[in-house]
Design a protein around this nucleic acid. Structure first.
Lengths: 118, 118
DNA sequence: AGGTTAATTAACTGATGAGTAAAGTGCTGG
DNA sequence: CCAGCACTTTACTCATCAGTTAATTAACCT
């Protein structure tokens, strides 16, 4: 009864790539401009292969791309997958800002009272 | 040489909770209003305990809260953790929209040329 | 009390993820 | 040509995750 995961959808891949503080830190660093693997690895208390793996995850998610320059592999940010997250999350905005918030909590109070009595 | 993960930061927890299509579908359903566990489970081809586990993940991430109404445990959306994602992602917006995009690629081209020659 | 429904917990399995050390690849420069 | 630098790949460990079935808790209803 093998359940094999065939392929992850783009949004899941992007979110899980970003659900790691090391990888988010790498992304943040790359927002300031290209960097090599060693440069990216420097701030972290982990081996180079570990960082290399993180970069591979980011690359597979399309969040970075890598060039080649002699023995260096400069990484650059590709923010488009993040746009997908922003687009996905946008419709939920109404749940946390604007007057809807107050309406929500009002409805919650009402509902709570009704449950207490019913 | 045990490396124990003490506790995940909020953003990582939220992102990893949302990096699963089942959980995102649950969230989407809850955007339409409260629902019980059985109602939430109905659309999925998986056991009730599996859904229950997904709900626990969402609850631990603060993305849902659960009330009690007789034998039902109605779930409701709590979108605030999503706001954290939106806030985190906001500064990257400049990387995918507006004229900055063109400026970026221009700068990257320049940089590439310079590297080739240096 | 006892049966039914709603949901969670427990115990287990197989897959994936994050890290390591050590070996391999590919390029540069004396 | 070969020493060394910049990485990547491999092979391994250990923890966590997603799912299962079976058992348990909790509330309702007659």
């Amino acid at each position: 009864m093998s359940k094999v995961l065939v392929s992850m959808d783009q949004l899941s891949t992007t979110l899980s790539a970003l659900a790691d503080p090391t990888r988010r830190a790498i992304i943040a660093r790359l927002a300031a401009g290209e960097a090599t693997v060693n440069e990216l690895a420097a701030p972290f208390d982990m081996s180079l292969p570990a960082v290399s793996k993180h970069l591979k995850v980011l690359e597979r998610a399309g969040l970075i791309s890598r060039g080649r320059n002699a023995q260096w592999r400069p990484c650059r940010l590709e923010a488009r997958p993040m746009k997908e997250i922003a687009d996905w999350i946008e419709p939920y905005r109404r749940f946390w800002d604007g007057s809807f918030d107050r309406l929500e909590s009002y409805l919650q109070e009402i509902q709570g009272k009704e449950s207490d009595q019913g």
